[in-house]
Design a protein around this nucleic acid. Structure first.
Lengths: 342, 342
DNA sequence: AGGCTAGTGGAAAAGGCTTCCCAGCCGGTG
DNA sequence: CACCGGCTGGGAAGCCTTTTCCACTAGCCT
């Protein structure tokens, strides 16, 4: 009685066979259904409010219509922007997105991969910097092998560590370009809020920045590269720690915007004027943070595009070897690092 | 050969029947499997890297393990915070979340409901203020009827318009409390960046605010309630429009934080000092915006909790009549609206 | 010792859909 | 006029699980 309407009901009601009803509704390739029958079926389906069961279709066709998205934290604007891109691209491709937010817990990642393996998702998009944790990466790699054996493809946004197609953000180059731009504005005494030691995205940005400074002949004092969380609070605490030593610094590079915001808050608490006493720069150019005061110098990453690209990559016909798409950032200098009058 | 491992393969390999293998693996109720057999099956499954096909399980059990989440824009921190809550609650319940982001296009909503109907999702969580658009709401209601006929339940975050369980945010009361607090701080000449006319959340906040002012004996001039988009740019343009008339105003209430940020940016462009010349307050207390300057007075809504609550509501055993859970906001006064010396 | 019950394994049905394959009918062709 | 091929409808197999139902064994009670 109750329960969803099935195709059999539609077929019976329309006076045709199951096969014909199916063909009428999803217009099978290389088979045609006589016009009057097709219309009758369509009208009946509409009248009965028939909606094909995607699970049954998935079984019959051996293919689902969903892709998985794994992020560290969907509430973080970095990830939610990329998620917006994934969602957009998925909709274009007629696919549904299954969202998994790991809350920064590495052990959840393979678990979610397994969930998506069971769902037989067409593809998984993994977003978020890898950690320098061989064991965790191995576990991930092995989950992904299982997933791909079950027919899915994978794309990664971040370091191309997992032997899968990757969208690689030019963290190192972006940070280097930022360093040169800051140097060009007259800054000479640099410090870095460097994020977690094992966080590869943070590391790439740190080393890119430091490398460029080295080349410019103003190498950074390693003591002025402080380790901290990759979050707003990390930036806050890092800044406090840094200035506890009253260092000789005219600009601080936080390895992401959210941390830079924390750093600015800390500066305020410490009565250090930004940019009067010290300039601050971030990375990512998070949209929501474009209006903070002082406006933040940063490296713009086209996050939504990154999401779209990753999705397209995952959905493209598989290649023999892992592909890599490189995405460049653009340095955006704003008030937080004005021209420095020496 | 290729393709995912099936239960039959496991059963054959372990030398038991399909039935036994199934029972061994998901420990069927009121049936036991002899220990040695169970272990053999489990070991084989592990060795073969068997992952049950969720689609097939859904068919056989007549129940899926996914819930749908429909938001206006996943990149907006308001929605992504709620999404974080939904994701959390879903994980606890062992369910996967299918994400749909409508990009503020009302016509996409029923389409996504249909997608979720086909997936036979257990529940749908719809987040986002309704519009005062009877036709769109009717279409939505009718999609939801189809969805529920196919066995799913629905919860809504927003105005309880769609005859479903709802988490109702006390927009009007929150705005009223904010108005009283601002009045208490000495403000008397109010303006409102009111959002879109038909946007019900915006409307509730506007009218709650205006109502309280009326009661306080300082009614707001309707000309000083400006209509604008519900976004950062809306706030920016609204503020410009408002001050184009050089109004006699000492505080501006933007109906959400993102708009308030836009308003502050506009004030800066117009060389209006905040809070020197005019105070600004928002609504939502978006985490990412807690560090802007000046720190924003606002009404804190526990967004993550809202997501959790909505999910729990949707997953609770169905009730005869639509339930409503009310969520109160808390006024948080910060630097953007200091005590006003008259 | 015979009959029960409890415990357990397995065959088979069911769940909704797609698609292969067969059959019927049409018109056209030699 | 018989045959052939193209078009189209329908029966049935197959996708992978769960679960019902049946069969069988072993142990217990009277």
């Amino acid at each position: 009685m109750a329960g969803p309407v099935t195709l059999s009901q539609v077929a019976r009601e329309a006076g045709v066979s199951l096969a014909t009803a199916s063909r009428a509704i999803n217009g099978s390739a290389n088979r045609t259904v006589r016009d009057d029958l097709r219309e009758r079926v369509l009208a009946t389906a509409e009248r009965l409010r028939y909606f094909p069961d995607a699970n049954a279709q998935a079984m019959a066709r051996g293919q689902t219509t969903s892709i998985g998205l794994i992020v560290h934290d969907i509430a973080d604007p970095y990830f939610s922007s990329i998620a917006a891109g994934v969602s957009l691209a998925a909709e274009r491709a007629g696919l549904a997105v299954t969202l998994a937010s790991t809350q920064h817990t590495a052990s959840r990642e393979p678990r979610f991969v397994e969930v998506l393996t069971r769902q037989r998702a067409r593809a998984i998009i993994i977003v978020g910097g890898r950690l320098d944790d061989p064991e965790a990466n191995d576990r991930m790699r092995s989950s992904l092998v299982d997933f791909r054996r079950s027919g899915g493809s994978v794309a990664l946004v971040g370091q191309p560590l997992l032997d899968v197609d990757s969208v690689v953000i030019a963290n190192s180059q972006g940070a280097a370009a930022l360093a040169r731009a800051l140097h060009g504005r007259g800054y000479r005494r640099f410090a870095v809020l460097g994020g977690p030691a094992k966080h590869l995205t943070a590391r790439d940005r740190r080393t890119g920045f430091a490398g460029a400074l080295e080349e410019l002949g103003t190498p950074i004092d390693p003591a002025l590269v402080v380790e901290c969380d990759f979050t707003r609070d990390g930036g806050y605490e890092g800044m406090r720690a840094l200035f506890a030593g009253s260092p000789d610094v005219d600009v601080v590079f936080a390895v992401n915007d959210v941390m830079a915001v924390g750093a600015i808050a800390a500066a305020r608490a410490l009565r250090i004027s930004v940019p009067g006493d010290v300039g601050i720069a971030g990375f990512d150019d998070i949209v929501t943070l474009r209006d903070i005061t002082p406006a933040l110098s940063t490296v713009r990453i086209p996050l939504v595009d990154v999401g779209v690209t990753a999705t397209e990559l995952a959905l493209a016909p598989p290649a023999a070897d892992p592909r890599q798409v490189h995405v460049e950032g653009t340095v955006v200098l704003r008030e937080s690092t004005p021209e420095r009058v020496v």
